[in-house]
């Protein structure tokens, strides 16, 4: 820091006349040093908590490792096992079902809320309220809904009773398990997603709307022809991030159904956790985590490609 403030020491080269180039080179070098210092904590964190565990996970996926005895290399055996493992395929199907319900509903609702906010109010209070569920810890949200959706004594079933609907075993019935968990997380995340979309809406210049109005476009037409296409880059970013997050569903399952009834909610992350930490099958769990990693990378790349995330229709 002090180095940049000090006057440059006399230099032989200066007399040769390359005075112009000097300060630029000096400054960039000086900045590099400072930049490194500022980057160091984040880099250390990234390497220690992300890169290293990923590499180690990749290594462990080729071993038989029961946690309490040292890992033994076993080649591709874990991956071969995975192909035969019905639980693994079931977990993938269940997870995809969750992602489809969760992301589908969440995105539609988020765009809806964002549009409402954009058209009706710019109040900070409303934005804060919309964000509230997201500020509550995942586990707390799951627990509160678990109580409210109780079959015998939950308030939701009580309410359904008043309007003449038979009580529903939200967490106990196989068909309801995943939709229930997906809806809980839609409730928690839609406000946050709506804010991201809302920010995207604000980047759309008003003149395009004015032009649409002049041309006599209806509200619906404006939304489909102007808002959505111009929102695409933001929407892609939001989709990529939320889909990755959605695939990693774990806490709500861990707090409520723990994979049951039978195998109806045994999502891939929960299955990996079970294998690793209750059955001490760490090598196999690592292999599954690697497959999930590859899967997510492919899904994200495909999305970015297909939805042309880098281009905007504005230009």
């Amino acid at each position: 820091m002090t180095a940049t403030i000090k006057a440059p020491p006399p230099d032989r080269r200066r007399s040769r006349g390359d005075l112009e180039a000097r300060p630029i080179r000096r400054r960039s070098l000086g900045d590099l040093k400072v930049a490194l210092i500022f980057l160091a904590p984040a880099t250390v964190g990234f390497v220690v908590f992300y890169i290293w565990p990923t590499l180690r996970g990749a290594y462990l996926s080729f071993t038989e490792y029961s946690l309490l005895s040292p890992p033994e290399f076993n080649g591709l055996q874990n991956y071969e096992r995975m192909v035969q493992d019905g639980f693994f395929w079931n977990a993938l199907v269940v997870t995809v079902e969750y992602v489809v319900i969760n992301i589908g509903l969440q995105t539609v609702l988020a765009v809806g809320i964002a549009m409402l906010m954009y058209r009706l109010t710019k109040s900070i209070t409303v934005r804060a309220v919309v964000l509230l569920p997201y500020l509550v810890a995942n586990v707390v949200v799951a627990l509160v809904w678990y109580w409210m959706l109780d079959f015998q004594i939950g308030i939701v079933n009580q309410f359904l009773g008043w309007i003449g609907i038979d009580p529903i075993a939200f967490f106990g019935e196989s068909v309801w398990g995943i939709p229930t968990i997906a809806l809980i997380n839609v409730w928690r995340h839609m406000g946050y997603t709506a804010l991201l979309v809302f920010a995207g809406l604000q980047t759309i210049p008003t003149y395009v709307y004015e032009a649409a109005e002049v041309d006599g476009s209806t509200e619906m037409k404006t939304f489909w022809r102007i808002t959505l296409p111009l929102l695409r880059p933001v929407l892609v970013m939001v989709l990529v991030v939320t889909i990755i997050g959605s695939f990693q569903i774990f806490d709500t399952v861990a707090v409520t159904t723990q994979g049951g009834p039978i195998n109806a909610t045994r999502v891939i992350y929960y299955y990996i956790y079970e294998r690793a930490f209750t059955r001490f099958d760490f090598g196999y769990a690592s292999a599954m985590a690697m497959v999930l990693f590859a899967l997510l990378a492919i899904v994200s790349l495909l999305q970015l490609r297909l939805l042309r995330a880098k281009e905007s229709d504005l230009a």
Binding site: Y146, D150, F151, Q152, I153, F170, F171, G172, E173, S174
Partner: peptide, 21 residues
């Protein structure tokens, strides 16, 4: 006896017992 779905869809067996069910 309740179905498995009903019995396991909720807080726990003691809480339901405590509610007189």
């Amino acid at each position: 006896m309740p179905t498995l779905a009903q019995a396991t869809s909720g807080v726990d067996v003691t809480t339901t017992f405590g509610a007189g069910k």
